[in-house]
Design a protein around this nucleic acid. Structure first.
Length: 470
RNA sequence: ACCCUCUUAGUUUAGUUGGUUAAAACUUUACUCUUUCACAGUAAGAUCAUCGGUUCAAAUCCGGUAGAGGGUACCA
């Protein structure tokens, strides 16, 4: 059997983190089995669906590298087909018209609730003659669900799950206005698209039993279901907009790399032994449904951040430089990104990326390369630059001024021998130097900074601190 | 109210067909390395939700309880 999976978001907002993971699992599963991965936009709720949301979702998927293998299917455009299948069901005697008003149904539910029964449709019109139909009432179409016995679904993640058929009522497949319901459209589309594996959130597990009713009524093959557990917020509660249910664009803004987010999402609910770092190629090789767990997981920013740091260290310097420059440009803080600044940031990237966990942090730490005298100093830097330190720096400046080469190795040698001659520990010279050059007490290796800044700029910054004009 | 699912260190996950000190990663706190930070390394953390049963032996099998999540729409 050839594998076909799909990701089917409804365009009522951005692509949130849970949806992204569902998409990832579908994508990975299809790739691993050499199958296809499709997209379907479930836009049948006309009131809540917006073209902006469609764009946001497609953008998010694109950023994560989870584009569909074919153009997305828009569910609303298939409405004719959905109604046609509903008609067939009617003809086959598997469905019937129901003339109950919404008010009647509401009363039905209330009564059931009051009597401690589950609120369900009682099947009033299942046996009644169509001739008894009230005039002037548009009926809905309901499907006949089995009334006794039980239904078992062998879920690829949840295992064998059985539900008493008494739980299933005759659900509506076509509304009074003639539009299909979600439950119906999904089945028709999954069938027509040839979906072999339905991988989706846990919240659809119960729906699978209802959908199975339609498959059987149409005598269609039921796909393999795989219901993956949901992601909870850091506090264990359902992921809502309050905590973490942000669009993937928000994660991009926070400075996360798509490969880091993918890796993190993959490990949320899936494992292959103790492997933590699983880049895409490796994931395609390893991913399968039997590695997916059944328990819900919490979203943990600390771990995402750690993973992100790993991928930043692995990332290409040109790419990171582009990202950093874009961020600095977007800031209102007014660093001047002339060619010199750009060149320096690119040259210093190796040292910068070793100590950043997000692109935001990377940009923050790179800013001093673009700054010009006088620098602004943070508290720790000011503390480092006391009178003793300035004296040390003055002496050091004279040594550096005499250098012909400002290569990293050369400045290192100069600074080290200076410290030695003065009987200073290297830190006594390096820290004030760092403060003077970067305005901060932490930075990439000081010799690298010196070399990247170059002789003129380095001395300019040191002199500015020592109060000596040249 | 009813139905379904889940429960291993603070977090994410390992843990083949029940069998010596329950494994890893992240986080936190120390320490090592070191020009700072980061990286790397070392150390510290779990009566495997709880109660009971089966067994020579259970995180692993069975049952009860509790807690958490999901579902029960002319929403998707």
């Amino acid at each position: 059997m050839s594998v076909v999976t799909r990701f089917a978001p409804s365009p009522t907002g951005f692509l949130h983190i849970g949806g992204a993971r569902t998409a990832l699992f579908n994508w990975l599963f299809a790739r691993h089995h050499g199958g296809r991965y499709l997209l379907r936009i479930e836009d049948t709720d006309r009131k809540r669906s917006t073209p902006e949301a469609v764009d946001a979702i497609l953008d998010g998927l694109n950023w994560l590298g989870l584009d569909g293998d074919e153009e997305p299917v828009f569910q609303f455009s298939r409405i004719e087909r959905h109604t046609e299948v509903a008609r067939q069901l009617l003809e086959k005697g598997q469905a019937y018209r129901c003339y109950c008003s919404p008010e009647e149904l509401e009363r039905m539910r209330e009564t059931a609730r009051a009597e401690g029964r589950q609120p369900r449709y009682d099947g009033t019109w299942r046996e009644r003659e169509p001739s008894e139909a009230p005039v002037g009432v548009d009926p809905v179409i309901r499907i006949k669900a089995p009334q006794d016995g039980e239904t078992t679904i062998v879920d690829a993640v949840q295992g064998s799950v059985t539900v008493p058929n008494a739980q299933l009522d005759d659900m509506i497949i076509l509304r009074a206005d003639g539009t299909p319901t979600y439950m119906h459209s999904v089945v028709v589309d999954d069938h027509d698209m040839g979906i072999s594996h339905v991988i989706r959130g846990d919240d659809h597990l119960n729906n699978a039993f209802r959908q199975a009713v339609i498959y059987r009524a149409m005598e269609w093959d039921v796909p393999v279901f795989a219901h993956i557990p949901l992601i909870h917020g850091p506090d264990g509660a359902k992921l809502s907009k309050r905590h973490g249910a942000l669009g993937v664009d928000a994660y991009r803004d926070m400075g996360y790399l798509p490969e880091a987010l993918n890796n993190y999402l993959l490990r949320l609910g899936w494992a292959h032994g103790d492997e933590e770092i699983v880049p895409r190629d490796r994931a395609v090789e390893l991913f399968d449904l039997d590695g997916v767990g059944r328990s819900a997981s919490r979203f943990d920013f600390a771990k995402l951040e750690n993973l992100n740091g790993h991928y930043i260290r692995e990332a290409d310097n040109d790419r990171l430089t582009t990202e950093v420059l874009a961020r600095l440009e977007a800031e209102p803080t007014g660093v001047v990104l002339d060619d010199t600044a750009r060149t320096r940031i690119r040259a210093g990237m190796e040292g910068l990326k070793a100590r950043a966990r997000t692109i935001v942090e990377l940009a923050e730490n790179a800013r001093f390369y673009a700054a010009s005298v006088p620098l602004s100093f943070d508290e720790k830097a000011l503390k480092l630059l006391d009178d003793d330190a300035r004296r040390v720096l003055s002496g050091l400046a004279e040594n550096l001024r005499g250098l012909n080469s400002f290569q990293e190795g050369d400045v290192e040698q100069a600074v080290r021998s200076f410290a030695e001659a003065q009987e200073l520990k290297l830190g006594k010279a390096a820290q004030p130097l760092r403060a003077a050059l970067t305005g901060s007490a932490t930075s990439p290796g000081i010799f690298e900074v010196l070399a990247v800044l170059g002789k003129d700029e380095s001395l300019r910054r040191i002199d500015a601190v020592c109060g000596t004009a040249h």
